[in-house]
Design a protein around this nucleic acid. Structure first.
Lengths: 198, 198
DNA sequence: ACAAGCATACCGACTGGTCGGTCAGGTCGG
DNA sequence: CCGACCTGACCGACCAGTCGGTATGCTTGT
């Protein structure tokens, strides 16, 4: 009967989708479990069947985002070609991905600190690994003399991802700029600011 | 006995200070009014004597930050000297001010969306005016040919302030970089990314 | 082939507790 | 004795999480 595969859309998935939407809209603390299950068309019992807690639901949302972003970054970082091009492509991609999944991004930067201390640590560690991978690209360029070396790579990454995370604050689909356009501009700004002296 | 002026530190001020600290630490929704008044050494009645609501308390915190930042920006923007220098000084200053008042900044970007719709609109409008003042500096430089013109000024401002707002996420006093150092680096990154072609 | 046994998926009333906000009243300087 | 300042008990709303129960269908022994 091909059950669990595709009745319409599995309950677990619907819960994640609706929770993401609501958390992005009103924040984690201002969204009740009751609202989430109502939006997904189920009851609380169903939610606590699939997730250990409201916290766990948030954690799952983060896990999904982090896994996807890390996967994409690795693809671009490990490609062949000049370091400047690889960094540009990776930077451009993360902006486009962020714009395409704006709700995920909003939840991320608004509600991360609402996780329990233990789960928060795990998420921070994952995020750190991601930043380090990105930072290594900058360092590689600096070592090769392609990027200027008089600026800390770590700080450049924080600078850039600050800008990326804040897309959720000001970007609206249908605005004057599309995702790919912003991606190109952001990547250009990053690469230019790293251009070697002289 | 010089009441309302300066017994030790006025109750109203203590409430604002402690509320800022707690909101920055745990977020607006996760901080109860009870915790705030306990930290300030008073009771709920005292808080509701000075503030109309918990929301109003948050609004006051924002008002203070916005007024200060706007005042400082105006000083740097209206100074004399080349546009590049004025923008550099303004950018450097906003980073230093943000680092020096990190709690204010954390509250700002974490809890702004928890305000009531009406108050939220007011804060957004104030913030917009601030961004516009900053954007006008970029446009001035572009018109004068000092900055490259192939990048939307509005977006550059969002890019830069994204990075500034996120200082609260990663900056810790006592880390490898001081506020002024980060200020200089950030301003350098901004100015370099605006350097004209060729 | 069929029933007993069991796992999965889900329901919804309920509980213990927290929260923002109110209010009647006390205190004290001018 | 008034009004600004402040107290602390209290209220109604709400919330995360629990629990006893139902329905369905797969597995397995015979």
């Amino acid at each position: 009967m091909a059950r669990g595969a595709a009745t319409e859309e599995p309950v677990r998935q619907r819960l994640l989708t609706e929770a993401t939407r609501l958390f992005a809209e009103r924040g984690f603390e201002s969204t009740s479990v009751q609202e989430i299950v109502a939006a997904a068309g189920v009851t609380k019992g169903a939610m606590y069947h699939y997730f250990a807690s409201k916290d766990d639901l948030l954690h799952e949302i983060y896990g999904r985002v982090l896994r996807m972003q890390m996967e994409r970054l690795t693809t671009f970082a490990d490609a062949s070609g000049p370091i400047a091009e690889r960094l540009h492509a990776a930077a451009r991609d993360v902006v486009m991905t962020t714009v395409e999944n704006l709700d995920d991004s909003k939840v991320f930067f608004r509600s991360m600190h609402q996780l329990s201390p233990e789960v928060y640590k795990i998420v921070r560690a994952d995020r750190r690994r991601y930043h380090e991978r990105f930072r290594d690209l900058v360092i590689e360029g600096q070592r090769g003399g392609v990027f200027r070396g008089d600026v800390p790579a770590e700080m450049v990454v924080d600078f850039f991802f600050g800008a990326v995370h804040h897309l959720g604050t000001w970007y609206h689909p249908g605005g004057p700029l599309t995702g790919p356009e912003i991606g190109r501009h952001f990547a250009d700004l990053l690469l230019r600011s790293l251009a070697p002296v002289g």
